[in-house]
Structure formats: C-alpha cells, structure tokens
C-alpha cells in the first residue's frame, strides 16, 4: 500500500528567501575594477649591455616634478600629447625626422610597414601619480588610434569591434605598445 507523503508547508519559503535576499543586498558591492594594464620588463642582470637605439627612433617624454611635460626637450601640453605620439609612431617611409620603417610579415595581415619607434617615458621622483596616469592614458589612446587605423585599413572596422582573437593578436603585434620606462631620476624631491 502506497503511503502519501505529507505536503510540505511552503508558506515560510518567502521569508527564507527574503532573509537571503537582504543578506546579499547588504554585502553586494557593485564596483567594477578598471585600470590601465601594463607589462613591466624583467629586471636586467647587472652586467647587461644597454642596447643601442637609433636616436631618431626615440621619442623622449619627460614629466617634471611640477607636472610639466617635455617632449624631445621641448615644452608640450597634455592635450597635444596624443596627437604628437600618434604622428611620431605612424608610418613615414624614408623621412629622417621619423623612426625607421621596415617591411615585416605578420600572420593574417601579410607584409606591412612596421615602425621601429619607441616611446621613452621618464618621470622624476616628485612627479605626481595623477599626472603620470594622465600621460599613460594619452599614450594608450594614441596607440589605440594607430591600431584603429590599421584595423580600418585591413578589415574596415574599428579595433574594438574586432572579434577574432587571432586578428586582434596580430594587430597588437604589428603595433606593439612600445613604451620604455626609464627609472625615475633622483631629482625633484619627494
């Protein structure tokens, strides 16, 4: 003879759910962490040779302790930095004022001109972190512009609209984020 299982009283279900709901409501923090990603270079062995880089391939950016910008020893403004970096890193074949350009072959992209330019970013100890982030932000924006241009040229859409991981990787390789950070100079106080 089959026995009936007695009905479970579900009246207090709402209360239990409420209790848990309130717990999670209170503990929830909704902030998403955002930031600027950078890759540090591994420490050099003490006897390492300093690689020689052609003068014309370097764009020197110095941020002083008063948070003023010097680009290639000339005063500059944070609002112009993006355009300047973009101009410097874009392709100018056979122009001695710009970095050396060479043809390089990349997966998916084929043979395209590749700029050997490097951005050298130097800050002093007294530079404020706020200013440093502003500069890093402008540099990121400039490189994003360049990648956008290449993606537009090759695929007719913007860099951030690309979906294929391989293509994104290839573009990242073709326009690498070449920012060399010198150790800060011990001037300018703390």
């Amino acid at each position: 003879m089959a026995r009936k299982t007695p009905q479970v009283n579900a009246g207090s279900m709402a209360d239990i759910a409420f209790l848990m709901l309130i717990f999670f409501l209170v503990t929830t923090t909704m902030d998403v962490d955002t930031g600027i990603i950078r890759q540090l270079s591994p420490p050099l062995p003490p006897d390492a040779e300093i690689p020689k880089i052609n003068e014309r391939n370097i764009m020197k950016i110095l941020v002083s302790s008063q948070d003023l910008l010097l680009v290639n020893d000339k005063h500059s403004d944070i609002n112009n930095l993006r355009a300047e970096v973009r101009d410097f890193m874009s392709i100018h074949p056979d122009n001695p004022d710009y970095p050396v350009v060479e043809l390089k072959t990349f997966d998916y992209l084929g043979e395209i001109p590749f700029s050997r330019g490097v951005i050298s970013l130097q800050s002093v100890r007294g530079t404020s972190y706020d200013m440093y982030i502003k500069v890093q932000n402008e540099l990121t924006a400039a490189f994003k512009d360049l990648r956008n241009d290449l993606a537009m040229l090759k695929y007719g859409r913007r860099y951030e609209d690309l979906i294929d991981e391989n293509i994104i990787g290839a573009i990242n390789k073709a326009i690498p984020l070449r920012i060399s950070e010198a150790e800060p100079r011990d001037i300018g106080g703390n």
Partner: peptide, 25 residues
C-alpha cells in the same frame, strides 16, 4: 602620491617577478 614612491614599488614588483600590473583608475 609621488612617483618616486610608486617606482620604488614597481622596482620591487619587477624583482619579485610580478610583471603584469594594472594601474587602477
């Protein structure tokens, strides 16, 4: 914060091998 202090931290991170960093903003 002054950059001097920040770069000291970055040097320590380099020595420790924590090379992937994120400046939280």
């Amino acid at each position: 914060t002054k950059m001097g202090f920040v770069s000291d931290i970055k040097q320590e991170l380099r020595k420790a091998g924590a090379l992937k960093i994120n400046y939280s903003t």
